[in-house]
Design a protein around this nucleic acid. Structure first.
Lengths: 188, 188
DNA sequence: ACATTTATGTCAGCCATATTGACATATTTT
DNA sequence: AAAATATGTCAATATGGCTGACATAAATGT
């Protein structure tokens, strides 16, 4: 991880400083909430950084992580569901998914009612990797909550939920709730 | 934005549900904190989605946004500082930075003390774009805080800060704090 | 029964953003 | 004078997005 040591000489004598009433507040409306904007950037960067290290050793990237994660959490999901969640094209998904299938992390099974569908399941190998990555992220979250006290989990959940597009929010919450109830995959 | 409408048939009748003490807690250590892991994914996706739309119309991408953001927030920063923050190589930065310079969003000035340095500044045009993008993100944050009550800002700040790598955290907080001082310089 | 729509896959090519390695130039430091 | 530093650049490569076009099988509607 990069160390953020911007040299103190940035605000060196002679270097232009902004005039008193900054351009933002004077001209362009409400003051940006800089701290949250930047903290989100850094927090997310570190949050995905842990899994990225593990994945790169396997020749995988963040795209594989996302696919494997949602497949593992929602056994039997359709390809189309995954496309909606990830918000990418089927061509993009196809490449990544094929690698996961070929290497035995994900398997596809013909739908029982609708035989056009290729329902997706994580194999034991895939589940193990998914859980390993989730565990890394959970360690970070647990450490953060440990620093913050018992109300932190609920507060974080509420904040993050409120940051989601309002028209998507219900769907996301349903997705999470159902995945929590979801069975272990039984591709029979 | 994609609508998350995973077909309800995933949890089809007859599909087993996870027994109370789930497989993960039985087998593989502590239970992953799925809700925060997934909410972070969706919240961040929407958070960067707003600027992405504006940027794509200008032929820019997320990389340009990051560069412009930090340059605007830290006028006079060195190229090396930017590389540390963004955690990319100078070759990757070079291409993006060149476009921003060529199109008049960023300018480079020779360092006064060290003439090897190319100190980076946002032009008025660059500042305007940066603020426009920050405004979009601020609208989302403001809406979220509005739903959550007055303590939400402090809670979010504490949560996001705690999620950052411990050895990076101080540097990040210093960076944010100094940028805030640059925006509203105290009468010296 | 036939036509249409749906779910998925695939081929081919393009673009954006990242990488590594090697090398160049100017400037500061030793 | 030599070494280290700050930056830039060339060349090649990889990943993960994209669009467009087309193929197949199965479900659905008339």
């Amino acid at each position: 991880m990069a160390d953020i040591n911007v040299s103190a000489k940035i605000a060196a004598p002679g270097v232009a400083e902004r005039p008193a009433g900054s351009a933002a507040s004077a001209a362009g409306g409400p003051e940006p909430i800089w701290d949250i904007i930047e903290l989100l950037f850094f927090a997310y960067r570190d949050f995905v950084g842990d899994p990225d290290e593990v994945l790169s050793k396997l020749g995988f990237g963040r795209a594989h992580h996302r696919v494997l994660h949602f497949v593992n959490r929602n056994p039997g999901m359709k390809v189309a569901d995954l496309l909606d969640i990830l918000n990418i094209t089927k061509q993009s998904l196809g490449r990544v998914l094929k690698q996961l299938v070929d290497q035995g992390y994900v398997l596809q099974k013909e739908g029982a009612q609708d035989r056009r569908q290729r329902l997706l399941y994580a194999t034991p190998k895939g589940e193990a990797l998914s859980l390993k990555l989730a565990h890394l992220q959970t360690q970070r979250i647990t450490r953060a909550f440990g620093e913050l006290g018992p109300a932190a989990h609920e507060a974080a959940r509420r904040f993050l939920t409120a940051m989601i597009d309002t028209d998507n929010r219900e769907g996301v919450l349903r997705l999470i709730a159902r995945a929590d109830r979801m069975a272990k995959p039984e591709p029979k």
